[in-house]
């Protein structure tokens, strides 16, 4: 084992992990507020990947050649449209079922996930899609055979994720909106009786989760360059794992879980075996669930007598 491979893999893992963390935020916030697992969230992320490609194509067609400006427009448009998707999914598929059994919205979520996958497959075709490489500069540290290579894109991914997480944390803890979100999370009925429009807060939660997924979608699409209508499934499951790992319902937990998952995946694949990296990731989940079911930063549920 060489030091430079280790550092390289740590950087790769951090990149992957921050993306998982961004998507995990959507799972963890929705779970926190209405106690359901939004299985369609991975597919919202997939939709954002398509939106990224479409908006890059459209903006390039209209002659925007400056790459930073192009990316900025792409991010804004993708966030906006993906948020509408998230809002609409909640409005159509979950809200009518809110007062029914716990399983009903879960099944509805799985249905929504299939609807999104098939709708994108029909609309965009089943083939792999791609976006051109827009940013290909790299930092290279070290010389000869022993070097660590960091692409600009990796730096962008990590810093954008960190900044969005910090902004989100501030939003939840410092603003009035965040206060209402936390109140709704702790006692929805009481929040309603104090005049908080809880339906709107739930919608906002879905919008925030989708916006984070959209940021992840743009970043990953630029990073890997290719995607298809099925990417939402495995990425969604991984992000969900990250959310559970960190403690579902906890915001910093989602980010931490994402980073742990990303790091362990990349370290395992480079030092042990690439084929079994997913097995390792999910074994980690099983172990955590056995020994610390509430996750790393989650609070254990106290059963009241």
């Amino acid at each position: 084992m060489d030091w430079y491979i280790l550092i390289q893999q740590l950087i790769n893992g951090l990149t992957l992990g921050s993306v998982y963390g961004l998507i995990a935020v959507g799972y963890t916030m929705v779970y926190g507020i209405i106690g359901m697992i939004n299985f369609a969230h991975g597919d919202v992320y997939m939709v954002s990947a398509y939106l990224t490609a479409i908006s890059i194509a459209v903006f390039t067609f209209f002659g925007i050649s400056s790459i930073p400006f192009l990316l900025l427009c792409t991010v804004i448009i993708t966030i906006a449209i993906t948020s509408v998707y998230g809002w609409a999914i909640e409005r159509v598929a979950y809200r009518p079922l809110r007062d029914s059994t716990r399983l009903a919205p879960l099944i509805s979520a799985i249905g929504m996930s299939l609807v999104l996958q098939n709708y994108v497959q029909l609309a965009q075709g089943a083939r792999n899609q791609g976006v051109p490489t827009l940013i290909d500069q790299v930092f290279r540290i070290g010389d000869g055979d022993a070097f660590v290579q960091i692409t600009y894109l990796q730096i962008i991914i990590i810093s954008v994720s960190v900044v969005s997480m910090i902004l989100l944390t501030f939003l939840i803890h410092k603003s009035d909106l965040g206060r209402r979100c936390r109140a709704t999370q702790q006692d929805r009925i009481m929040a309603g009786i104090l005049g908080v429009n809880t339906d709107r807060i739930i919608s906002i939660t879905f919008v925030i989760g989708s916006a984070m997924a959209a940021i992840a979608g743009v970043l990953v699409t630029l990073y890997y360059g290719s995607f298809d209508f099925y990417v939402g499934f495995i990425t969604g499951i991984k992000a969900f794992t990250a959310a559970v790992l960190g403690g579902i319902g906890s915001l910093p937990g989602a980010m931490l879980g994402g980073i742990i998952l990303g790091l362990s995946e990349s370290l395992f694949s480079s030092f042990v075996n690439t084929d079994y990296k997913d097995v390792f990731a999910f074994s980690l989940l099983v172990l955590i669930l056995i020994f610390k079911p509430e996750g790393i930063l989650g609070t254990p549920e106290t059963e009241k007598v």
Binding site: L167, F170, L171, K174, S175, D176, L177, G178, R179, R180, L194, G195, V196
Partner: peptide, 13 residues
């Protein structure tokens, strides 16, 4: 008291 606070999330941020 959320009805009488500044509800703009950006302002809070």
């Amino acid at each position: 008291q959320h009805m009488s606070t500044n509800r703009n999330p950006v302002a809070g941020l």
